[in-house]
Design a protein around this nucleic acid. Structure first.
Lengths: 413, 413
DNA sequence: CCACTTGGTTCATGACGTGAAAGCAGGTCG
DNA sequence: CGACCTGCTTTCACGTCATGAACCAAGTGG
């Protein structure tokens, strides 16, 4: 229902994209297998693959004997055709990583952020510095970097400027994309950190092979990344998936967003610790930072602690059930440091709580798993942004080439 | 990221689809305007439109003078090229309606359903009987019916058999699609009633011109139809949008689905009346059927009544806010008979309650409106199912045509 | 050495969108 | 009344693309 024409070029691009995506995702494949699984004719597979080999994007990778026939030549994406850089702008540090096309990390740089509300200019400088640092560190030609993906912990407008609104950073309307583009020629992609982590989880983690999923992230805050039919659901202005601030206890606890009864106020680490402190007024709360305190609470054996954890599981189950009812995913992937900590000990109980609150049918159609990639996957997720573009376009778009005016002969007559 | 090839045929189909969709949605247009808005070359527009005119799918509709030049010829979809039949399987009756391609209703048939849990066979018979009744009534050749869309009030699996699970009808696994196909040659489409109503509202009602919307339906039950980027969001197994059974008051009132604290238990008409009865134990509840009672409650001036309504608005606002936070729509369209009744008097209060519970940014990006089409639009919505297919395919797919073996001469040598 | 099997490539063909030129239908001006 | 202008539409040669069929390549078993 798109209001856009299709031309012969689009067709070729689409077919290159299909082939490239399959080669990249499903490892080395022969031309024959490619033809089978894409329904393209062998002639076209040969033609398109040949083109991509000539460009250096795809390469042959050994051959496999096939009983009694010519051995098949396997094809793979050339890891060194280009490189991807991903960055994670967290609350305490900026992390930049360089990957080859197999998503193997080759270099890493990290910059601490001192201020609670860092200056955007400074963060952009860190990012740009990190970009050149990792290329140098890995000995990669900066021109070979296909794209620079940046993950931030707020919402990102889908405009050219990539305007960022990040409450935790104190940013409201920072055109991070524009700022970065001013400092580098590498194509820049900015997106929300939960979404990039979700994308990484979908490609390399617990979401492999699933087309509809929700990645539910529980840390100090609570968010979700919804994947619909293989690609991220963004909504009208890219701020879809604000799961943490859905109301789950009407008129309940006050959340740091100002509203009452948000899910985050009950299952976010801060909310859980708060609830424990409240229930346990006699004893002092566990010390240390939030993450340590949360871990201690989880391992504690006191009645109050256990009850708070039980309640948390109940609330979380209800929250997950809401996602199941609304999005009807094939899989829910639970992550975030607090979500993982909770899930490692209590996944069966979480499943049970979800079952209690969700409709029978949608629940039966879904499975609830834990994230497989650590929280460091945010930077890798950011690097999937340029990778996704590469796959979608079937390689680097042919430059207009400015063909040298082929001296068009005058028309007939 | 689709794993499917694209061929030259797909290109032409896609372009026909773009043109046809534009002509149909945006009224009579000249070839020139079509070229402009689709970016297709005038040559292609002429070619494609010419083909569709030859098939009878498009027709010229007068011309408009253009100052000082050749007048433009306007094009429209030929209303009589084919007909669409839509049906609504409600709890009390089966309603079947016939439309031409301008979605003008030409005939109607209705069959009451006696039993609370009607026999699927009997419903299918009503539907098939209705299909032939409306064609006969309108004097339309049954072969000219392009499709038969059927809306039911449960979830519908997206399989060839269109298996229906409808709690309110007591159906669990009824292959309605297969049953209907056995009785007619007309292409059958079965879908959920909320989704078809939502589609109608998107094309002809409060959702016109919007690409991301949520149609929130509040009647005796509560449901939602999510439209993402112009087409309905279904999830993995088509049961997405079960808004009514999301938890909004953890551990709250028991819902008829068995869980505690579902939104439906608070804002569904039954739940509202229940709450009123409970709060007003001294006085008897309003009499009559649910719809009458609900209307009376809305108009009542007693303190208890007003308080119940106020609370309902609060709960509804929180529910809508959850939709806004999770889906980030451009527009929320409130409908369903109870939703409309409530909205007609209290829309500003509902907006305010939503603002109170939603995050500032997503709320600012959305507008909350009332449905414009009555609840009878379900049947029209069902008729949009075959229409959507027609538009998507750019007309009736060319039959394989079995070209008469062009006596291929042997190859070279 | 020859059938046989399986994998990959070449080539003529037909489908399709495109830009440029031509055609066409009105009006205006001399 | 005819030359001319304007703006909409069609025609045509061309280049791009996927395709099926024939062809070539590289092994195995007799």
């Amino acid at each position: 229902m798109d209001a856009r024409r299709t031309t012969v070029r689009d067709m070729r691009r689409a077919n290159r994209s299909v082939l490239l995506t399959r080669i990249w995702l499903d490892g080395p494949l022969s031309r024959h297998e490619l033809g089978q699984s894409t329904a393209l004719s062998l002639a076209s597979v040969s033609n398109l693959v040949g083109e991509m080999i000539a460009e250096g994007l795809v390469e042959e990778a050994g051959s496999v004997e096939s009983d009694g026939g010519r051995p098949r030549v396997l094809l793979r994406v050339a890891p060194g055709y280009g490189y991807l850089v991903g960055a994670d702008v967290g609350e305490t540090r900026v992390q930049v990583e360089l990957f080859d096309l197999t998503m193997t990390a080759l270099a890493k740089a990290e910059y601490p952020i001192a201020a609670a509300e860092p200056d955007p200019r400074q963060v952009a400088d860190h990012l740009l510095h990190g970009l050149s640092a990792v290329t140098e560190q890995a000995g990669v030609d900066p021109a070979a970097v296909l794209g620079f993906g940046v993950a931030v912990s707020g919402t990102v407008e889908r405009t050219a400027d990539a305007v960022v609104h990040a409450q935790t950073l104190g940013w409201d309307g920072v055109p991070l994309g524009a700022m970065l583009r001013a400092g580098t020629d590498v194509p820049v992609h900015v997106d929300n950190g939960a979404k990039t982590l979700g994308q990484a989880e979908m490609w390399f983690g617990a979401g492999r092979g699933v087309r509809h999923a929700v990645v539910a992230l529980v840390g100090s805050g609570v968010g979700a990344c919804v994947v619909a039919d293989g690609s991220g659901y963004r909504g009208a202005h890219s701020s879809a998936g604000e799961w943490g601030h859905t109301t789950i206890v009407y008129g309940g606890r006050r959340c740091r967003c100002g509203n009452l009864g948000c899910l985050e106020a009950y299952v976010g680490a801060e909310g859980v610790l708060d609830r424990f402190r409240q229930a346990n007024r006699g004893h002092p709360a566990a010390g240390g930072d939030e993450e340590t305190a949360f871990g201690e609470l989880l391992r504690a054996t006191g009645r109050t602690a256990e009850q708070v954890i039980d309640e948390t599981i109940g609330y979380l189950g209800a929250g997950v059930a809401n996602l199941v009812n609304l999005f009807n995913p094939e899989r829910v992937v639970l992550g975030g440091w607090a979500g993982l900590a909770l899930g490692e000990r209590h996944l069966p109980a979480i499943r049970e709580a979800t079952a209690r609150h969700a409709l029978r049918q949608p629940y039966a159609q879904t499975s609830i798993e834990l994230c497989r990639l650590g929280p460091d996957a945010v930077a890798m997720g950011a690097a999937t942004l340029p990778m996704a573009r590469l796959l979608r376009d079937g390689g680097v778009p042919r430059q207009p080439a400015a063909r040298p005016a082929p001296a068009r002969r005058p028309r007939h007559r």
